[in-house]
Amino acid sequence: MKPLKEFTIAFVGLKEAKHLFEYKIEQAFFEHFEYEEFNDVNIKVDVELNKKTTLLELHFKVSGWVNVNCDLTNEPYNQTIENEFNLVVKFGDEYNDEDIDILIVPHGTYEISIQQYIYELIVLAVPTKRVHPGVEDGTLDSDILEKLEELSPELKEDKEKEDKEDIDPRWNTLKKLLTDK
């Protein structure tokens, strides 16, 4: 996959201090990754780079919303997300990203691409079960919801009440015989 230029940080010319990078993520970013779960995206990413003599410390902070479809009703809604992640970049003999929060890059590297970390941070911030807020508070009117309620199994209490009403009265006299002992 071709790296996006705006998500590449050239750290070689930076002073040893903290540097802040801000990014606005929109739908085109996820189209680059061919990720089609989101209908629309509006996310702000703050990356704080703390350059030290032997390593780099990156702190990612993601906040905003993604428009996704509800798992129950398939109605689109804006899911707010927030997530944070710390990454340490060290220098070594060869590239190694096996550890989740430590990245080792070869000596002489002058830039790092952070697009994959931003992508994963956003995707992992979205809940696995996406439920429209209108479903939770009962304000959403949807044909699918009405059909689900119509086809849902009856509650146990309602069933017991119906069972009591449907009992043949002759059985009640027989039950009295059992309790008269």
Results as ranks from 00 to 15, higher is better:
Phe7Cys: 04
Thr8Asp: 08
Ala10Ser: 14
Phe11Cys: 05
Val12Ser: 15
Lys18Thr: 15
Leu20Lys: 15
Leu20Trp: 05
Leu20Arg: 14
Leu20Ile: 14
Glu22Ser: 14
Tyr23Asp: 08
Lys24Asn: 15
Ile25Arg: 05
Glu26Pro: 02
Ala28Gly: 12
Ala28Cys: 04
Glu31Asn: 13
His32Leu: 09
Phe38Glu: 07
Asp40Asn: 15
Asn42Cys: 10
Lys44Arg: 08
Glu48Phe: 09
Leu49Gly: 13
Asn50Trp: 07
Lys51Ile: 04
Lys52Ser: 10
Thr54Ser: 10
Leu56Pro: 06
Glu57Cys: 05
Leu58His: 08
Lys61Ser: 13
Val62Asp: 11
Ser63Glu: 07
Gly64Trp: 05
Val66Glu: 06
Val68Thr: 01
Cys70Val: 03
Leu72Trp: 07
Asn74Thr: 09
Pro76Arg: 08
Tyr77Ile: 05
Asn83Met: 05
Asn86Val: 04
Leu87Phe: 06
Asp93Gln: 09
Tyr95Pro: 02
Ile102Tyr: 13
Leu103Asn: 07
Val105Phe: 03
Val105Gln: 02
Ile112Pro: 00
Ser113Gly: 02
Ser113Cys: 02
Gln115Ile: 02
Ile118Met: 10
Ala125Ile: 12
Val126Ala: 09
Lys129Ser: 08
Arg130Glu: 01
Arg130Val: 02
His132Met: 03
Pro133Phe: 02
Gly134Pro: 00
Glu136Cys: 00
Asp143His: 03
Leu151Pro: 00
Ser152Gly: 00
Ser152Asn: 01
Pro153Glu: 10
Glu154Pro: 02
Leu155Asn: 09
Glu157Ala: 14
Glu157Asn: 07
Asp158Leu: 02
Glu160Arg: 08
Lys161Glu: 15
Lys161Val: 14
Asp163Pro: 00
Asp166Lys: 15
Asp168Trp: 03
Asp168Pro: 04
Trp171Gly: 00
Trp171Cys: 03
Leu177Gly: 03
Leu177Ala: 04
Leu177Glu: 06
Leu178Tyr: 13
Thr179Lys: 15
